[in-house]
Design a binder for these strands. Structure first.
Lengths: 129, 129
DNA sequence: TGTAAATATGAGTTGTTGTTCATACGTCGT
DNA sequence: ACGACGTATGAACAACAACTCATATTTACA
C-alpha cells in the first residue's frame, strides 16, 4: 500500500452499505501521517534478525557490533546495516570507544512494546494455561 | 534478513571482544522461531493501510469490505487482499450475511499493542508537555 | 434462470528490503 | 608512517510485498 489517498469529498464511485458508520469511523480514524509514523515503528520490529538484535541489546545493555553480530549469528556487515537503520530511527544510540562502537537501546517504549508482544504471542502458546 | 542461522559451536571465524557477555546474552535471547513468530505479528502492523484497517475495525466493531475500503480510502480489491492476510494470520474474523462479508478484529492483544504504540509514539510528540 | 451485487483470487508489475561483496574510514600499536 | 583491526557504507542482487486489472465465486432479486 503506497500511502494514504485522500477520500474524495463527494463519493463518486464508492459503494457503501452503511455510509453513516463509515463517516463516523473515518472521524475517529488515524490520519495518514499518524498511520505512517506508527507503521514505521512497527516495521523496525518486523524482521526476526532486527528483533533479536534489539532483544540482545536490551538484555546486554550494551554491545559492540562484532559481539552483537556473534550473538545473533549474523554477519558484521548485515548487523551494521541494521544498526544504521535502528540508529537513524532513534531506536538505538552508539558510543565510540577506541575503534569499537558500542550500541545500546535508546527508546523508552520498545521494551514495553516487546514485553507486551512476547507476553501475549509467545507465553500464551507455550506456557499455556 | 532471511532467517536465523545457527551459531557454529566452535567459533571459527567470529571476532569477539567480550565472548562471555556474548554467551550470556545468547542464553537469554529469543530463539529463531520465537523471533520469527513475533516479527510476523509486527509485520502485520507495519503497513499504514493495514494499520488503518485494523484501527477502523476496532473503532467500528464490524465493517463490510466495501465500507472498510471507503473508510480507509483504498480500493475494494486491495482491501480484500489485505483482509485475507489478516484473516490467515488470525487477526480478523469474517462473517457472511447475505452477499456481504463483515469483518471484525479477532485478536485480544492487538488493541493493547496499538494503544501502547499510539500512546507513546503519537501522543508523546503531539500532546507534548 | 439470468443479471447484477459483494467479495475473493490469480497474474502481472513495481517498489521496497535485506543480504553479500568490495571498499572506505578512523584508530591503535609498532 | 604503516598495517591491522573494527566499523561504515555503497552497489548489486534476490526475495518479498502491495497494488491494479481481469476474472471467478456466491448470493439476491426480478
Amino acid at each position: 500500500m503506497a500511502d494514504v489517498i485522500p477520500m474524495p469529498d463527494e463519493a463518486c464511485e464508492v459503494r457503501m452499505v452503511d455510509p453513516e458508520r463509515v463517516e463516523a469511523t473515518r472521524a475517529e480514524l488515524l490520519s495518514g501521517d499518524e498511520a505512517s509514523e506508527l507503521a514505521e515503528r512497527f516495521k523496525l520490529l518486523s524482521d526476526p534478525g532486527r528483533l533479536r538484535m534489539i532483544y540482545a541489546l536490551l538484555e546486554a545493555g550494551e554491545l559492540c557490533v562484532c559481539d552483537l553480530a556473534a550473538t545473533v549469528a549474523a554477519s558484521e556487515s548485515a548487523t551494521s546495516h541494521q544498526l544504521r537503520q535502528l540508529r537513524l530511527a532513534g531506536l538505538v544510540r552508539s558510543t565510540k570507544r577506541g575503534r569499537t562502537v558500542y550500541y545500546r537501546v535508546d527508546d523508552t517504549h520498545v521494551r514495553l512494546l516487546l514485553d507486551v508482544a512476547v507476553e501475549h504471542y509467545l507465553h500464551d502458546h507455550e506456557v499455556r494455561v
